[in-house]
Design a protein around this nucleic acid. Structure first.
Lengths: 343, 343
DNA sequence: CTGAAAGCGCTTACAG
DNA sequence: CTGAAAGCGCTTACAG
């Protein structure tokens, strides 16, 4: 069988306890002993058994990463790999491993999380989303298991560690940006309102309008479900209004391009006839026509910092609640036009 | 502390062995006993300790998923989430969990894999890439650890389980497709040749040319490193040739759009002046201008089937070597033009 | 159909 | 600075 700590102990003429301490690099072991034991470990090609170590030590050095597999746009292509990259980068340098959730439905995810926690599979959990009335999060909070989330929690904000962008502000600034270009009629195509990110971006849009003394007009707000089911029709209705918008804020680059495509089908050009700004700065948005003005939300940092918050919680007994908004950058490209001097 | 198998045993008036067998749903336990024990488990909120179970049973019900974090285009945005989705879907229904690699460099990945194998962290491994002379794969093969890969192995094809697209054929068919549209001058922008996928697509391109009695012209082949370092200049040089190509095959949609952008900067339009086809069918390629003709490579299936191959290996003693090419679909959109009757 | 017992390979107070 | 011993919470031949 595989070589164990006992084999190493015999070969090095020490006790298993000592070998164990050498593995953990305990300061209580003399340098000579360490060297000798390590030499034997190398020679015997010893590797610690992960499961045995976890069982005895009651920790796993593993973090659970829970993704929302759903159809939510927020978790479409570009977000996921990048946030994972951030988490991995931070995990790797802290000697942590990553256990990924596999469930597809909310119910499956919930069950998985419970079994991760109860079965002691992981030391802490990162939720890669924040959803309204999330049972999974409620559970984690209730049992006081270390966790953090990427996304602002819907409630109890003060009692939960999280990393997010300041979506309300970003959204408000977008309105601001468009207003400075002369736009007074700004539509908004939102995301799935089960997710807090969508709620915040919508809220920021409303606040932005208010600050500029513009009215929120319900016809200017296209809901996620309408956009998905009605497709081009939703855009057509928007543009057929007596006073059609001169600018659109889309909650994601993919959606922005879908809109642009529909507009094109309706013989409306971006940015000549209408301006469009968006969120997330996908890899393609730089190369594609028109190059999209969009907000880079620093996805890598989101993941990286979430992981760091988690280690802090796992390490200490008293749970420190922290949150942080990762800065974002508006990338100005070519999907907006100033209409200041037209009127 | 947490409730253990012993607490359940006492409460249900059976031995721990029996409880263990109930958990495993052993047929050797009577239905009545099962029911009684399960009722107690529920009442006491018992959850099996994952680590203890793994240690005793010498298996983990976990598969290691190794990604190449490198800058390789093949692992850019759209591929990763989709292949993970496929693996997760299959893993979930087979009661497997997923342990993700976190390393960034080849060396880190190698070390991680060794510790996964030796430390008994996982029952099997999926390599999400196939690279030339890959140390990690060589190790897995040498120690006869169950693994499978997404991508054709560079060598020993008969001795390794893998799932892939038939990239050579796809690439050949692309040449075929373009030739039927009247194109005789077809350029190729390739990927990182450390990866077998890039090699295969290039090879298919060459074979396709040969079949149509067209010559492989070195000036028509833009290498990954040239494209990355020289950017627009590489395209400019291509189009300045005495006989510039009338069509380009790009190894990825992202690259295709980068090329299209460069061409545009050079006042060359797609598809009017030049046709372009590509691989991978990104989410955006449908909406963006021009809508791209590209090959959908069924990424979800790639992941799903890779996982299935792995379970088969983990389950049985005799290793069954299998491979399969997942079918692909050419999605014809609007980036190609027939030039048959122009000449 | 069920149980007693050994064992999986570590860690960690406790003692010296 | 090091060791003997108990224990982490399961599984699985073996026996009946």
């Amino acid at each position: 069988m595989a070589v164990t700590i006992i084999d190493v102990a015999k070969e090095a003429n020490v006790s298993p306890s000592t070998v164990s301490r050498v593995i953990a690099d305990s300061p209580r072991i003399s340098v000579q002993t360490k060297r000798r034991v390590r030499e034997v470990m190398e020679r015997l090609k010893y590797y610690p058994n992960f499961q045995a170590r976890n069982l005895a030590a009651k920790r796993t050095n593993t973090i659970g990463v829970i993704m929302s597999h759903s159809t939510s746009l927020a978790f479409q292509n570009p977000f996921f790999p990048e946030v994972i990259r951030g988490i991995c980068s931070s995990a790797h340098s802290n000697q942590y491993g990553i256990y990924l959730s596999t469930g597809g439905t909310e119910e499956e995810i919930y069950k998985e999380v419970v079994s991760m926690v109860q079965g002691k599979k992981v030391d802490g959990i990162i939720l890669l989303y924040s959803r309204v009335n999330d049972r999974t999060m409620a559970y984690l909070k209730e049992v006081k298991f270390p966790f953090t989330m990427v996304g602002r929690p819907y409630e109890n904000e003060k009692e939960i560690s999280y990393i997010d962008n300041d979506n309300k502000i970003i959204s408000k600034n977008m309105v601001n940006y468009l207003e400075k270009l002369g736009h007074q009629h700004i539509a908004f195509v939102g995301g799935d309102i089960d997710f807090v990110v969508s709620l915040d971006r919508l809220e920021g849009y409303k606040q932005g309008l208010k600050e500029k003394n513009l009215y929120f007009i319900d016809e200017y707000f296209i809901r996620d479900e309408d956009f998905k089911t009605k497709g081009i029709k939703s855009i057509q209705e928007l543009m057929k209004l007596d006073m059609p918008p001169t600018a659109i804020i889309a909650h994601d680059d993919l959606v922005a391009y879908e809109i642009i495509r529909y507009l094109e089908d309706l013989s409306i050009n971006v940015p000549e006839d209408i301006s469009i700004v968006s969120f997330n700065n996908h890899a393609l948005s730089e190369y594609v026509k028109p190059p999209l003005t969009t907000v880079d939300i620093s996805i890598f940092e989101l993941g990286f910092e979430a992981a760091i918050y988690l280690y802090e919680q796992v390490g200490s007994d008293q749970i420190t609640i922290k949150h942080h908004f990762v800065p974002t950058t508006l990338i100005e490209r070519n999907s907006c036009k100033s209409i200041k001097f037209e009127k």
